[in-house]
Amino acid sequence: MAIKQLSLSAKMTIDGFMSGIHKSTVKGPGLEFSQYRSYQPGDDLRSLDWKMFARSDRYYIRESEVETNISIRLLVDASASMGHQDGAFRKIDYARYLAASLAYLGNLQGDAIGLYVFKDAGIFSMVAKQDFQHLARLFYQLEQITPDGTFTKPIHYKELYAGAQKRELLIFVTDLYELKQEIFDLLDTLNTLKHEVLVFHLMSGNEMSLDFKGYTTFEDLETGKTIQIDQESARAAYQENLKGHLDKIKNKMLDRRISYRLIQTDQPLDQALRDFLNQRNKLKT
């Protein structure tokens, strides 16, 4: 039942999001006919349509739609910090629905979709494929994710090098919580693959505002360490430090030429989906 709900939610999210958005295609030499246009000096003469010339005594270029399908790998952080909760909603829940919606949208556009889950003991991987049976299996695996332990160690990153050699879009959904630079080490590894990388950074509303309904004791979900905090007196300094931290993250992403988007888990998915479409359009050009 949970799998059906995830699938239905992804479909409803995408159908609602795509309502009113017109399909955009890239024109050029290809297999599927698109349109004719007048010949311009410098055009490839091999694209001239001589039958149209015979009928009209004018030169026309026959254009087709370029095949732009790509492979998309969804990378999901399943370390314990993704179990952080704001009200009844956890980061991993948001990540699950975001990944499902992106998978559904990619499949709808004819892209091959793969899934890589970063767990404490290693990486669970599903190679990228393009069919609805594969999509159903991907939804099933998303439902099985249970955040636990620390982030995956580099010894397991060999899984990332498997797969096709053509260009890919790697979408990493994470809260960017790290102990010793391990997530940015992963991003450096992803950059060596020469693919486009898009990072969705998840933070909850209570993290952003330091508003935990009167709690004074806080526990690190990955190390188990605890700390006592007076939220009222610490809030101003906390928010200032958080702003500096987020600015530093943005600069690190910029240095690595990685597309980055901070998302609060109490916000709708629309902006994340728009960012996905923008990044996919970059791969087409």
Rank of each mutant, 00 (worst) to 15 (best):
N107M: 14
A99M: 03
K119L: 13
R90G: 00
L176Q: 03
L176R: 01
I113Y: 02
D111Y: 08
G87A: 00
D175I: 06
L102F: 11
Y97G: 00
H134F: 03
Y97H: 12
S101G: 11
N191V: 06
K119G: 12
I155G: 12
Q85V: 07
T68C: 08
L108D: 12
T174Y: 02
V76W: 01
D111W: 08
G149R: 10
D148I: 11
I183V: 12
T146I: 14
G122P: 05
L105W: 12
A164M: 15
L98D: 05
G106D: 06
A88E: 01
V76A: 01
P147Q: 14
I183K: 15
L160W: 07
F139R: 00
G163M: 13
E159V: 08
Y161S: 14
V173L: 14
Q133A: 07
Q141Y: 12
K129L: 13
Y104T: 04
D148N: 13
D120E: 15
A128I: 10
A80E: 06
D188R: 09
G114I: 08
Y140D: 06
E178K: 03
R167L: 11
D111F: 06
G122L: 01
E182T: 07
V117G: 02
T146P: 02
H134P: 05
L190Q: 08
D120K: 13
Y104H: 13
P147S: 14
T152D: 01
A103D: 05
Q85F: 02
I70T: 07
F139C: 02
V76P: 00
L98H: 08
G83R: 06
T150W: 04
I145P: 01
K119M: 14
G83D: 09
F124E: 08
G110D: 10
V173I: 15
L190M: 08
V127N: 13
E178W: 05
S81P: 00
L179T: 13
G87Q: 00
D93M: 04
L105K: 09
N69R: 07
A136R: 13
R90H: 03
D93P: 01
